[in-house]
Each structure stands twice: as structure tokens, then as C-alpha cells.
Design a protein around this nucleic acid. Structure first.
Length: 802
RNA sequence: GCCGAUGUGGCGGAAUUGGCAGACGCCCGGGACUUAAAAUCCCGUGGGAAGAAAUUCCCGUACCGGUUCGACCCCGGUCAUCGGCACCA
């Protein structure tokens, strides 16, 4: 009738804590192992059943490594700045600090009840001034090295949160967080030059053990493209530089397009005869929200700049110049040469406005009807000195020609944009800069860090999205650290991603007041050996933190180029109805209820057994019960343990196989099959009716990383006061995992006709002989012509007959 | 549209990477125990056909085709679902 998990789960959690069993020791002579999960945002909703999937997985890794003799760091903390807390604070008129404290308290209780082997003595909190002191310090270093700059620029403005968003935070034209419409606004914003690291962020992926889809997603996001910048002369005498990856098609350019925001337009204003139309188009374009821009992408719009033309540098032909918002001001040069015969967008535009289409690459269908964009095949035509070359040959030939004649040059572009780093919000790290009329932006002295968040009456953003800190007038007024004159503090705060961009460093030395971490700790623990987290952070947190880390490497603060050696990702846990868990769908499973009813071990074991770790799977209460039953069977094993040491002859093979299987499966994150193997073993134990002490203890050790409480409890009578969690991981003997006799399959023409037990080490010839000697096979092959016999020793014999 | 992943019993999922498809668990069915039920333990469980039975045969990994002695696995094509990107020239 059940096992009394409530009687001991808490007991062991307390004992691990009291003994400091999972404390990592900086500088220990043991080899180090740094396992990390993404620290949670302590939301009011409490822990989601998805969190423990990742935490249990790396807990298993951490616990196993510890048992294998490593000095393991498996830390935990709170990524606690952010909008949901602030919005809750506004709504309920409670200080976000209090909200955060309460949420952390609840999260901490929930995490503790699950028995993770976190080193709680290293707990960190991004909203703690002792923590954000160093977030601010890093920002100051970025500023001092010219990687932080303030710029008036069109930003994504969330109409709901009243805050600027980075491109990464805009999903399908709406705010990732609140779902409100996002529009373009011009705002002065702090920016971080992540683009300066674009190439290195791609290149350095090579040496890393990241799952492939993370690497490709990051590469696609950074979006490197090789091409050329080509200069077109305008009839006004000005130059317009366009960016193209297909300079081979230059002879086919039939018009030039500038983005509506292109700077040149104002300069040549006087030569444009339809200026009113241009003004109107620009205004319309700027009013379009991000949503409209993407949704209406199909329908091309534009205005010709009348009174001017551009000259094609390849053949001197005069081309009309247009403006259109299908050309983005933020990419390349904000201007393109249009080759409608060989580009989908240009084709569409040319059709709509009846512009000429000239074929310069042969090999497609009629380019008057559809563009031919294939780069792999196709030969240049109508293209002067390029005619006859393949596209692949023509591109470098054209670039060489352009460079030789001073008409263009090779150019690499990236889709990645600089990181919009300021938020007009309260609950974030204050940006530690002051503005002085005389000296401009001046960093505050490092001794003055942390620059603490001032107290304010209300946390709402002001009209027009002013930062709530604007109301802290006393705080804002200060003196310039440079000239001593009057100055004002920056009132924007940092985005939520700031604190998480370096937290893995703080874990190494969390209480250091002199530095973000000591040199010794950084040298000892870097890099994180294994970092598991969600795919949703691939282009945000994961990229941002790699960027910060590279910067810190460049200025000599950290010893490695990359923060994380290995990155894996877990699949989502869906509701029982196979949909994403959400309050509105009513399919949320609360970890508190699960632990209360079935205990932490059953919860952990089930989350590991639920399916392939990297794939999404629906929750199942029945499946959970199955795992509970398994643990119950483990519990009841204690009644059948004999006093014998070691392994009994009839279970020896099984035990060695099991040690091998479970260990290897844990390492490869095949937790589901590791648990399955242990379930299978349990079935065998029950069949036999008794097991030795040695078998029992070994079994408990293998299960311990997944189900630490029940195994500690069962081990207690055998441990002599020692914790099972700190016991040595069992070893196996490869020889003893091998069977003496194996079953092989005999096929005739690929169909199974017989199965034979043969000695495992039987030679190829003898295996073949045994197969052909089988009665069944003899009967089947009688009177037929044996054409061929394929023998795979230890596996199969296939006899081909006619 | 582009990039990536996935598709296997009633369900979650296995399959040493080209060698017995369906491990393990759930559900369901049967039996033991019990006055009875629950719990527990044992057995069965992809579909179809033949047989009283042990057993035997056929079909089967989204669909179509190919390579191979042999394909869930490799190749070509199609469809579906999910995730990411999306006017990036």
C-alpha cells in the first residue's frame, strides 16, 4: 500500500543541506565539472512542470559526475528583473522588490522539495545590488571600449508595455510578452555593438559541442552574406551605393531602389520633380506598424523619383530611381539595384510598375513570366564580358572588374543588428552614466557601484513612455564625475537580458566584493562544461551571453573565448490534451500537487521516463502512476535482500549489463531508456524472488541520480552513515556483459525462417554451417539452388536461394 | 517562401545506426490472493488468417518509388504536423 515518501524526502533534503553534500570547492584537486541549467525567472505562477525536466536531467549528470569523483558545480539563482513582476507591482501597488522576494520564496520551496543537488550556498539574484553592481560594471567596460552608444533610431515600440523592444522580442509583429501591437518609433536608445562580434560569433561555434540545430539557428540569425557594394552615379552627380550578392546580374539591372528613409533623398530633393509624392510615400511608410509591414509584404508599393536617373556602371544605361519600403534602410546600404529577371521581389515590383525585365542568365523559363533565381546552374547572356560564364564564375569576375575600375568592392553583410539595450522601465538595472552638458555621457566612478534603483511613488511608465525613474528627481540630479558641474543621471534601465548575460561567472565566486569573480575561480571553473536550456533562448540569451563573454575575454577578465562548452536543449512538456500548457486551456499540471500525491522521486523519474529528452511530449497522469509503481517495487525490494555480498552467479551478467547501460544512457541524455532498463531489471529481481546486498546497493546507486530520496532511505541500513549520493559510481567488467550463447536469426531471401542458439564466439564459417545444418533450413532449401550466404557473426545468416 | 525537426500498436515511446520492428511504461483482458473490492503478484496484449492445441502463415514503421542478400534506418519524390526565420537584395 504505497511507500511513505513523505516520511523521508524532507529528511534527506535537510541532511544534504546540513552536510553541505553538494557544495563545490573552488581549487579542489579533483577534476572540476560545471553543469548548469537556465536559472528561472521567478514568476508569480510558480514552477512549471517544464522546469524540472531540464533541472532533473542535469541533476542526474551532476550527481553521476560527483559519484565519479568530480568536483561538481551545479548552481542555481534567480533571473528576477523583468516586466511581469513590474506589471504585477503596478496593478497591485506593491513594490516589485517585495513581489520578487515572495516569488523567489515560493520557487525556492518548490525547487527544494524536488531534491536537486544545487549548491545553494552559491545562490544568486540578479536584482541584488551586490549582483547588479557587476552587471553595471560590465556595462561601463562596454561603454569605455566604445561598444555602448546612444542613438536616435527607429525602434520597435510595444504599445502595451510602452517600452522599446529588440528585434528578438518582436514575434510576428507583436510583443513577445504581452501580444500587443508593435509600431515603429524614433527614440534615443542605448545600443550595444554586438554586430562587431558577428563574425566571431559564427566562427567560434566550430569548436563547441552545441547541438546542431542551435548552431544553425544562431548562424541563420546572424545571417552572414557575401556580396559586393556597387556604386551607381546619379544624374545629380551624387553616388548611390547598392549592396548585392548577385553582381553577376549587373547588366540586367533595370532600375535602382532606395529605402524611403535613405539619407540621399533629402540631399537631392531639389532635383526631384515630384517631391510631394515622395514626402507622402515616406510618411505612409513610417506610419506602418511592424505588423502591417510584414502582413502587407506581398503587395509592393513605391514611388519613382522623377527628374533623376542612375547610370549602370557596367553598360552606361540610364536607370530610373525609385523609393520603396521593400528595401530596408537597416540592411546593407539601404539601396539596391533591381534585376527583375532574376529576383522574386524585383520581378514583382517590375510587373506592378511595368518596368523592363532583361534576361542576363539563361537556363530558366521565360523571364517575362517568372524570374529565374537559381545560382547553381545557368549561364550569362546579354552581359558583355561576362557572357558565356556560369553564375559561379561570373560573380568573382565581376567583382574583380568592379574593384579594378573603382566601381565597387567585396562586402560581407550580416542580418544581425546592434542590441537595443535600454528600457523605459523601473524594474531593471540603472544604467550607470550621467549626462553633462559640457562633457556628454560620462560613466560614474566604479567605486560608486552599485548605482542602486531609487525609490519612486509609482512604477508606471510616464506619458509617451518615459521611464518611471524620471520621477526620481532628487536621484537624477547629480554632478558630473568629470568636470564637477551639474549633470543628470540616465533614467533608462537595462533589459532583462543583462543579468543573465554573465551569471554563470558569478556562480564561480558569488560573494566576491572586489571583482565579478576572482581570477582563481574563473581559471578553475571556466568554461561551463554542460549547459542545458530551451530552444527559445538560442537567438536571445545564448547569443547575448556569448557576446558579453567574448568582450570580457578581449579585455582580459575571463580566460576562455566561449562561456559554454556544451549546449543541449530539452523538449516541452505539453498538457494531457497535447496542447501547450496554459491557464486558459485549463491543462496546467501543478508540481506541488504531483509531489504531494506521488512524491519528488516519482515526479523526477516520470519526467525522465516521459519520452526522448529533446522532444516535446504530453503529460500523462497514468504514466506518472506507472513510475510511482516502479518506485514502489524498488521500495519493496528490501524484503528480498539477502546478506550475501557481491553479485549472485545468475544475476551477475544482468548487473554488469545494467551498470553499463544506465551509465551510458545517462551520459547521452537517454534517460527514458535508462529508466526502462532499471524497470526491466526490477522485473527480473521479482522473478527470482531474492537479491544480494551487493546487487541491491548497486541498483540503488544507479537509480540514485534520478530518484535520490528513496534510494538514500533504502541505502541507509547499509551505508554506515555514508550518503549514497556521495558513494562511488559502480564499475562494470566489459567481459561480464557478454553472453556466452546468443540467438541468431536465419533468413531465407530476407525472411526469417529459423532462430538458433549458438556460442557467442562462433566463427563465421561455423555460424554458416550451423545455419545450413538447421532442420528447418534444410527443409526450406531442399531442391533449391543456394546462390549466396551472407553471415553477420553474432547477428544473422541470410541464405539467398533460387 | 526559406531553414530545421518529426511521422512506428489504442496511448507515451524503444530499436546497439543497414541485420529478430514494437524494449519499458500506460491502457485493456485473464488468473492468483480476498467473503468481496481495492492494492499487490503472475500471465497475455500490432493487425489478419488457419488450427482443439503447441504452433504455423500472411500483412505491417505517413505515402509512392529506388538502392541492397536484407531498409523504421540510405537515396529520389509526395503529404502531414511542429519549431525557427521571413521583402536581409
Amino acid at each position: 500500500m504505497g511507500y511513505d515518501f513523505k516520511g523521508f524526502e524532507k529528511k534527506w533534503q535537510d541532511r544534504w543541506e546540513a552536510e553541505g553534500a553538494f557544495h563545490a570547492k573552488t581549487g579542489s584537486s579533483k577534476p572540476k565539472y560545471y553543469a548548469m541549467i537556465e536559472f528561472p525567472y521567478p514568476s508569480g505562477a510558480g514552477l512549471h512542470v517544464g522546469h524540472p525536466r531540464s533541472y532533473t536531467a542535469l541533476d542526474i549528470i551532476a550527481r553521476k559526475k560527483r559519484m565519479e569523483g568530480y568536483n561538481v558545480l551545479y548552481p542555481i539563482g534567480w533571473d528576477a528583473f523583468g516586466l511581469p513582476t513590474e506589471n504585477y507591482a503596478i496593478k497591485n501597488k506593491i513594490h516589485p522588490k517585495i513581489v520578487t522576494e515572495n516569488n523567489i520564496k515560493n520557487f525556492k520551496r518548490q525547487l527544494k522539495m524536488l531534491g536537486f543537488s544545487f549548491d545553494w550556498s552559491r545562490e544568486i539574484n540578479t536584482t541584488d545590488p551586490e549582483y547588479y553592481k557587476w552587471t553595471q560594471w560590465i556595462f561601463l567596460q562596454l561603454f569605455k571600449h566604445g561598444l555602448a552608444y546612444k542613438q536616435e533610431m527607429p525602434i520597435n515600440w510595444c504599445t502595451g508595455c510602452k517600452v522599446g523592444l529588440s528585434n528578438e522580442e518582436v514575434v510576428n509583429g507583436v510583443c513577445e510578452r504581452c501580444g500587443s501591437e508593435v509600431v515603429q518609433r524614433r527614440k534615443s536608445q542605448w545600443m550595444l555593438k554586438i554586430t562587431e562580434y558577428a563574425q566571431r560569433l559564427i566562427d567560434d561555434l566550430d569548436g563547441l559541442d552545441f547541438i546542431e540545430k542551435v548552431k544553425t539557428q544562431q548562424k541563420n540569425w546572424i545571417g552572414r552574406s557575401e556580396g559586393a557594394e556597387v556604386t551607381f552615379k546619379l544624374s545629380t552627380g551624387d553616388d548611390v551605393v547598392v549592396y548585392t550578392t548577385r553582381c553577376d546580374t549587373l547588366f540586367g539591372a533595370t532600375y535602382v531602389v532606395l529605402s524611403p528613409e535613405h539619407q540621399l533623398i533629402d540631399k537631392i530633393k531639389d532635383s526631384i520633380t515630384n517631391w510631394d509624392d515622395v514626402i507622402k510615400y515616406r510618411e505612409d511608410a513610417s506610419k506602418k506598424s511592424e505588423f502591417e509591414r510584414t502582413e502587407l509584404a506581398k503587395e509592393k508599393t513605391g514611388v519613382a523619383l522623377e527628374g533623376i536617373y542612375a547610370v549602370n556602371p557596367a553598360n552606361g544605361s540610364k536607370l530610373p530611381v525609385w523609393i520603396s519600403d521593400y528595401v530596408l534602410v537597416t540592411y546593407g546600404t539601404g539601396a539596391i539595384m533591381a534585376v527583375p529577371a532574376h529576383d522574386d521581389r524585383d520581378f514583382e515590383f517590375a510587373k506592378k510598375f511595368s518596368l523592363p525585365i532583361i534576361e542576363v542568365v539563361a537556363g530558366g523559363k521565360n523571364v517575362q513570366e517568372e524570374p529565374y533565381t537559381d545560382v547553381a546552374s545557368g549561364v550569362l547572356v546579354n552581359s558583355g564580358f561576362l557572357t558565356g560564364l556560369t553564375v559561379k564564375e561570373a560573380i568573382p569576375t565581376m567583382i574583380d572588374w568592379l574593384e579594378k575600375n573603382g566601381l565597387g568592392k567585396r562586402k560581407v553583410n550580416f542580418k544581425l543588428r546592434d542590441w537595443v539595450f535600454s528600457r523605459q522601465r523601473y524594474w531593471g538595472e540603472p544604467i550607470p552614466l550621467v549626462y553633462c552638458e559640457k562633457c556628454g555621457w560620462v560613466p560614474i566612478p566604479e567605486e560608486e557601484l552599485p548605482l542602486k534603483l531609487p525609490e519612486v511613488e509609482t512604477f508606471e511608465p510616464g506619458e509617451d513612455g518615459e521611464s518611471p525613474l524620471k520621477k526620481a528627481t532628487d536621484w537624477i540630479k547629480t554632478t558630473c564625475p568629470h568636470c564637477g558641474g551639474p549633470a543628470e543621471r540616465e533614467t533608462d534601465t537595462m533589459p532583462q537580458w543583462a543579468g543573465s548575460s554573465w551569471y554563470f561567472l558569478r556562480y564561480m565566486d558569488p560573494h566576491n566584493s572586489e571583482a565579478l569573480a576572482s581570477k582563481e575561480a574563473l581559471e578553475y571553473w571556466s568554461p561551463v562544461d554542460w549547459y542545458n536550456g530551451g530552444m527559445e533562448h538560442t537567438t536571445l540569451h545564448l547569443l547575448y551571453s556569448r557576446f558579453w563573454h567574448k568582450f570580457l575575454y578581449d579585455i582580459g577578465v575571463v580566460p576562455t573565448k566561449e562561456p559554454y562548452q556544451k549546449r543541449t536543449s530539452h523538449g516541452m512538456i505539453l498538457g494531457e490534451n497535447n496542447e501547450k500548457m496554459s491557464k486558459s486551456r485549463g491543462n496546467v499540471v501543478n508540481p506541488d500537487d504531483v509531489v504531494n500525491e506521488f512524491g519528488a522521486d516519482a515526479f523526477r523519474t516520470y519526467e525522465m521516463f516521459i519520452g526522448a529528452f529533446d522532444q516535446s511530449t504530453p503529460w500523462s497522469n497514468q504514466g506518472l502512476k506507472g513510475c510511482y509503481k516502479f518506485l514502489e517495487r524498488v521500495w519493496n525490494l528490501k524484503k528480498m535482500v539477502t546478506d550475501d555480498e557481491g553479485f549472485s552467479p545468475d544475476l551477475e551478467k544482468l548487473m554488469h549489463k545494467l551498470i553499463k547501460k544506465v551509465g551510458e544512457d545517462y551520459d547521452r541524455m537517454k534517460f527514458n531508456t535508462a529508466i526502462a532498463a532499471m524497470m526491466s531489471a526490477i522485473n527480473d529481481f521479482y522473478k527470482k524472488g531474492s537479491i544480494t546486498k551487493g546487487e541491491f546497493v548497486t541498483f540503488l546507486t544507479l537509480l540514485n541520480p534520478a530518484a535520490p530520496h528513496i534510494t538514500e532511505e533504502l541505502y541507509e541500513p547499509y551505508g554506515g552513515g555514508e550518503l549514497l549520493s556521495l558513494r562511488k559510481w559502480p564499475e562494470y567488467d566489459e567481459e561480464k556483459t557478454k553472453d556466452d550463447e546468443i540467438e541468431i536469426v536465419v533468413q531465407i531471401n530476407g525472411k526469417i525462417r529459423d532462430k538458433l542458439m549458438i556460442p557467442a564466439d562462433l566463427s563465421r564459417d561455423d555460424t554458416q554451417k550451423a545455419a545450413l545444418d538447421s532442420e528447418k533450413i534444410k527443409a526450406e532449401t531442399a531442391g533449391k539452388n543456394v546462390v549466396k550466404v551472407i553471415v553477420v557473426p553474432g547477428k544473422i545468416v541470410n541464405i539467398v536461394v533460387k
